[in-house]
Nucleic acid binder design. Structure first.
Lengths: 113, 113
DNA sequence: ACAATAGGTGACTATTTAGTCACGTGTCAA
DNA sequence: TTGACACGTGACTAAATAGTCACCTATTGT
């Protein structure tokens, strides 16, 4: 099985720890590994190495963009791959219906994870 | 690690065979297991059992909705979970920028997978 | 220069997941 | 009612993935 761009994205999103990191970066952009490590530690008990490994997966998928600043590594969420997923299965004709349904669903269930 | 609704969705999307099935259902709704089996067989070499197992994962994630008709089982794509993913990391304020960037990216790369 | 800080690498184990197979259930048509 | 058809289940093997550890590199402040 060949590995494509999109394959990396979906594999990256398949892990809840990595999704938690994306949430953290969505809330506040430009966080360092150390900062992310602390956030993750609040939810799971994972070593720095685990966090680093997960970040590498997110970078490979282009979901996270990195900028080095001194001895720190700052991370930024890249929403483009998410948008590409959306476009794959939701076309303009169904979009408005889906949005209405989604609002209903959200109101009924409140928060996940 | 607890398993949530969204967890099932992301796990389901992590496999390229399952994404292929969603593509097939996006193109034509209401296909039977046998029909999907044929489509999948055109891309990979997988038995009917494999296809059936993948479909069960997609159903559990609510990405595919099933309707039984006689001895056939018809499958329909449900776009709502995809929309929920989108809403998780793309808010209204960044939406228009992301759309512009995505168009650029698509034009540059053409097709994936 | 030296210690502390921020992060990276490769090898290893444990768990998860994909895929197949033999067999079972319900449905239709002759 | 008998046989073919459409699909499901539980057990099993093989491959992929998560997580950790000992050790290493680069940058900063005193």
């Amino acid at each position: 099985m060949i590995v494509t761009d999109q394959d990396l994205v979906f594999k990256a999103l398949a892990d809840s720890t990595r999704r938690l990191m994306l949430d953290a970066l969505h809330e506040q952009s430009g966080q360092s590994l150390g900062a992310l490590e602390e956030i993750v530690a609040g939810h799971t008990d994972m070593s720095r190495f685990g966090v680093s490994k997960h970040l590498k997966v997110l970078e490979a998928a282009d979901l996270v963009i990195v900028r080095k600043q001194g001895r720190q590594k700052l991370h930024y969420l890249n929403p483009v791959p998410i948008r590409v997923i959306y476009d794959r299965w939701i076309d303009k004709y169904t979009e408005s219906q889906v949005r209405a349904l989604t609002n209903l669903k959200q109101r009924a269930e409140n928060h996940h994870e």
